[in-house]
Computed example of a mutant assay.
Amino acid sequence: MKKKMMYGLFFGDSITYGEYDGVFGGWVDILKRYALQQYSEGGNELILFNLGIGGETSEGLVKRIQNEMTARNAEDGNIVFIGYGANDLAVKDQKQMVNPEQFKVNIEKAILLALNFSKEIYLVSILPISEEIAGKISATGKVRTNEEVLVYNQILKGIAIENSLNYIDFHSAFLEDKEILLSKDGVHPNEKGYGMMAEIAIPIIEKYL
């Protein structure tokens, strides 16, 4: 039987990119190594692309998703992961970077574009923020609150339900132990946190291996 070769495309911000994980390189990189190992043991080939850009909002996603997917389009199909909101909800210079209404429009627009290339789309929840930095100005001049995280996650959940897409709830997984799963900046996971995200995501990519 001919083996399948699919692509997994991970769109997102620095949490997709894996910032601040000097050990594993973030959750997507862990998945990449896992998929490669499964392939070398006789599984299907699943090539994962980490398309995370630090600081990006859903505005950037809408601008680039079409080109990125056209450039990486596997014959046997593509799996798309969309992880945005942590920058969108941030307030910078007294102004929210992307308000909830616009965020919803952007994510829906990105999904429409992605559907031309893929039927397998996963929306990724926003992580909770450490109590120490919630509501305070970060090094990058951004203010984030856990109330806003809930509002934006609700939007993502709603979009997933309306469009019969999959929702990956990292938020619930982090909630109780967030203070030990987040790095010093209170926004990005540390290697423990990224490891946990990978553990949750492995059964998802397992289906395609």
Rank of each mutant, 00 (worst) to 15 (best):
L123S: 00
A160K: 00
K104C: 10
I126Q: 09
K157T: 08
L115E: 15
G141T: 01
L150N: 07
N87R: 05
K119S: 06
V149K: 01
S130R: 09
I126N: 06
N106R: 02
S125P: 07
I137Y: 09
I121D: 06
V151N: 04
V105E: 12
T145I: 09
P100Q: 12
Y167W: 11
L115S: 14
Q154I: 02
I155Y: 05
E148G: 08
S138P: 10
T145H: 06
I168A: 08
Y122T: 02
E131M: 08
T145A: 03
S164G: 03
T140L: 15
L115A: 13
I155N: 01
K142T: 15
K142N: 13
I133P: 02
G135T: 07
G85D: 06
I126G: 03
K92G: 13
S138F: 08
Y84V: 00
K142I: 12
A160D: 05
Y84R: 02
A139W: 14
V149M: 04
F170Q: 08
Q154E: 13
S125A: 08
E120L: 10
A139M: 13
L150R: 08
E132R: 08
K119D: 07
P100L: 14
V91I: 15
E148M: 15
N153C: 03
I126T: 06
I159F: 03
L89F: 12
Y122P: 05
I107E: 01
A110W: 10
D169V: 02
K109M: 15
H171R: 01
F170L: 14
L89V: 10
Y122A: 07
T140K: 13
P100W: 10
A110M: 13
I126S: 03
E147C: 11
I126C: 05
N163V: 11
N99C: 12
L165I: 07
G83W: 07
S118K: 02
A90V: 08
K95E: 14
G141S: 08
N166E: 13
L156I: 01
L113C: 02
E132F: 12
G85F: 09
S130C: 10
Q94K: 13
N153K: 00
A134T: 06
E120C: 11
G85E: 12
K157I: 14
D88K: 01
I161T: 11
S125Y: 04
A173F: 09
V91Q: 06
L123H: 05
D93M: 08
V91G: 01
N166A: 10
A86L: 15
P100M: 08
Q102T: 14
D88F: 06
Y152R: 05
A114Y: 10
D169F: 11
T140E: 15
S164F: 13
K119F: 12
I133T: 01
A160M: 07
L165Y: 14
V124H: 05
E131L: 06
L127H: 01
F103G: 00
L123W: 13
I126A: 04
K92V: 15
V143A: 08
N106T: 00
V124S: 05
L156K: 01
